[in-house]
Design a protein around this nucleic acid. Structure first.
Lengths: 215, 215
DNA sequence: ACTCTTTGTGAACCATGGTTCATTCTACGT
DNA sequence: ACGTAGAATGAACCATGGTTCACAAAGAGT
């Protein structure tokens, strides 16, 4: 028996791992995933390039991990609201407003999570992120439909629409070089949320001119 | 005077250019922009790799050109509908349905245009594409608001929401490996369109529980 | 003190795929 | 026919940036 992992070593390993993840996260928060190059991450974390590979099998894994950690924080905030008490409509309102507002506040990070051009690995992670948004929204919608607060609707599709509408409406303004959020951010958020709520609530069957004419 | 460009030569040049663009377009339609590698494009177009650079300064330019040509066709279809006669609401309905339906029919191409992970150059082109969608939608909305068919609303934001909701709701199903569109495509489209129309029409001020309570 | 194992190092390595360029070919004008 | 300009060629080139690996350092056990 020649070697055993001490607590102090385990701690140091854990510290390193954290330092690496933090370094990567910070780089992403500053310049998006494009800025998270292995050399830079290592430098910022205070370790050698090769060391990164003792903790993560590849850049892709490292970036995925960062993506998951950052997005998990957001998801938890939203999930918390979704799981709360109160009428579905209020929770929906709150979730949407929070989603949009947090994106506006943390623009660069939001841009990285939602819109920055990334490679296929991260795109996959991003898809998962969107899907989870959809599921949170869908949960509330389900509630609302059950209690009769919302008209009958296909909750999955409506949720997907919301999960797409919000980021897209924000993306132009979210782009790193845009500054229009500083002032008009709040009203923008309000308007987006309003659209989504209306999409949910006004789900009753509706007719085109032809249908009205033939009635 | 030693040389003058003949008609036959000009024609051949134009043919080559077209052949290259077509080759690239076909590759994109089959395997997305990821499949449009210069070597492949050249092979498919029946020219040498170097020749590509006599017609396009870089791969990025070539791909942008392809993107523009393909997307222009879509935009024109939508713009045609938007510019038509009839009540705004019908035109909106028609435009949205057409947008979604065409995406469903030309899945792979739609995926490439809307969702495939691409590099920054094409992402820029894609952003322009989205913006143009938004402008088409916004034009109709503007009309509808003016004529009183729609309640007052921020047309730009609503348009952006629509431009985001439709692709996002389709993306999962659009993904090359998914086959769920074959059967459920039409109802999916209907539901998405319904959500968007409701978002536009139900734009009247709406109140949260707190606001209702304090009234 | 000595050995053995794990951990850390960073310069060299390599894979990918776009781009170049010396050379060859084509066709225009005389 | 022949000289020349423009067009075509495609194998070699190169830039980027992730990954490796031979070696050194540190820590654990006897």
């Amino acid at each position: 028996m020649a070697y055993r992992r001490t607590d102090s070593v385990s701690a140091r390993l854990a510290d390193n791992r954290r330092a690496i993840l933090n370094a990567a996260r910070d780089l992403v928060a500053e310049g998006g995933f494009a800025a998270a190059q292995m050399t830079e991450v290592a430098r910022k974390a205070g370790v050698a390039t090769g060391t990164l590979y003792r903790y993560f099998p590849s850049k892709e894994e490292l970036c995925r991990q960062v993506f998951r950690e950052v997005s998990a924080r957001e998801m938890n905030v939203l999930a918390g609201i979704a799981a709360g008490e109160g009428p579905a409509i209020d929770r929906l309102h709150e979730v949407l407003r929070t989603f949009a507002t947090r994106a506006v506040r943390g623009r660069r990070l939001a841009y990285a999570l939602l819109a920055e051009p990334v490679d296929v690995g991260l795109a996959e992670e991003r898809a998962r992120f969107r899907r989870m948004h959809g599921e949170i929204f869908a949960g509330i919608l389900e509630d609302g439909v059950t209690t009769g607060a919302f008209p009958p609707l296909n909750v999955k599709i409506a949720a997907a629409c919301i999960a797409g509408a919000i980021p897209t409406a924000l993306i132009g303004p979210l782009a790193p070089e845009s500054h229009e959020l500083e002032e008009k951010g709040d009203s923008l958020v309000e308007e987006i949320v309003r659209f989504c709520l209306a999409g949910v609530e006004g789900a009753g069957a509706r007719k085109t001119t032809e249908q009205r004419a033939s009635a």
